[in-house]
Design a protein around this nucleic acid. Sequence first.
DNA 1: ATGCTACGTTGGTCCAACCAACGTTGGTTC
DNA 2: GAACCAACGTTGGTTGGACCAACGTAGCAT
Lengths: 150, 150
Amino acid sequence: MDNTAPQSPAGLSTTPTWLLNQTAGHAARLLSEGFAAHDLRGYHYRLLATLAEDGPASQADLGRRCGIDRSDVVAAINDLAGRGLVVRAPDPADRRRNVISATDAGADEARRMGATVERVQADLLAPLSATERKQLTRLLTRLLHHHSRH
Amino acid sequence: MDNTAPQSPAGLSTTPTWLLNQTAGHAARLLSEGFAAHDLRGYHYRLLATLAEDGPASQADLGRRCGIDRSDVVAAINDLAGRGLVVRAPDPADRRRNVISATDAGADEARRMGATVERVQADLLAPLSATERKQLTRLLTRLLHHHSRH
DNA sequence: ATGCTACGTTGGTCCAACCAACGTTGGTTC
DNA sequence: GAACCAACGTTGGTTGGACCAACGTAGCAT
């Protein structure tokens, strides 16, 4: 989208935070464009993928697993349910909870979106060799792991 | 039931896009907290740092260099000018333009914020050796450079 | 029975990013 | 010089992701 390449100040363009931010922004944009083809957004994908992967769960649990706030889960599940990709049912074992399950259509969509994500991934990492991709993944995982337990 | 699930689905937590997004989010959060101590935000820092580094520039030029939209530059410069960190003056050579310059106070603030950024940087990269930091920087730079021209 | 916690939900806030449109000004081209 | 088009600053939006406070209901422990 940037017709004119942003020239980022020399002092900033070398800092890892800047690089991370820019690269992640680029990845997010590519993903967002990919998701748009499915008429869905990031939250939807995360939830759908988690459901398709790990099976039914309560909304709070989904939120915890995806790192999405409870209140945001409500809206996203509303969307997904409205499209028949997901079903909301009261949990007979705990009436506070809703059990969310992916429908067949939902599982389908999750697969298709997964393919989209992989395509984007390949696009993003195109300039890197397989070894370098592993390297990057490893470094980022280390950073994340270190900081995720606060 | 509530075995406090790990955040992030297994299938997602290995994808570079997810890792990038999460890591950048973490970095952004740390930066945001750091900036809050100065009662400023990301846009302000980018603009101020660019001004302090490269000297006065028009708003459009600033926006181009920082990757900030013209309209957002207006608001941010308004804030900075309101604090006396920056001065807006009409360009005698081109009356369409405003020349933005950092004041002494602005340059001071830029230095202090730069120190904050470095602190955050060190915090973020704590788990990585110097070699690994270089590696990460190199990989991200490669990615960014590749995607920024096309 | 009391109190504490978890759940779903409503209704916000915030920041970063982007876009459309307008009036003004500069630079070209006739 | 007049007619155009491009660039500038500005206003006033929209979007996506993330977060927060509060409420009523429901489960759990004492």
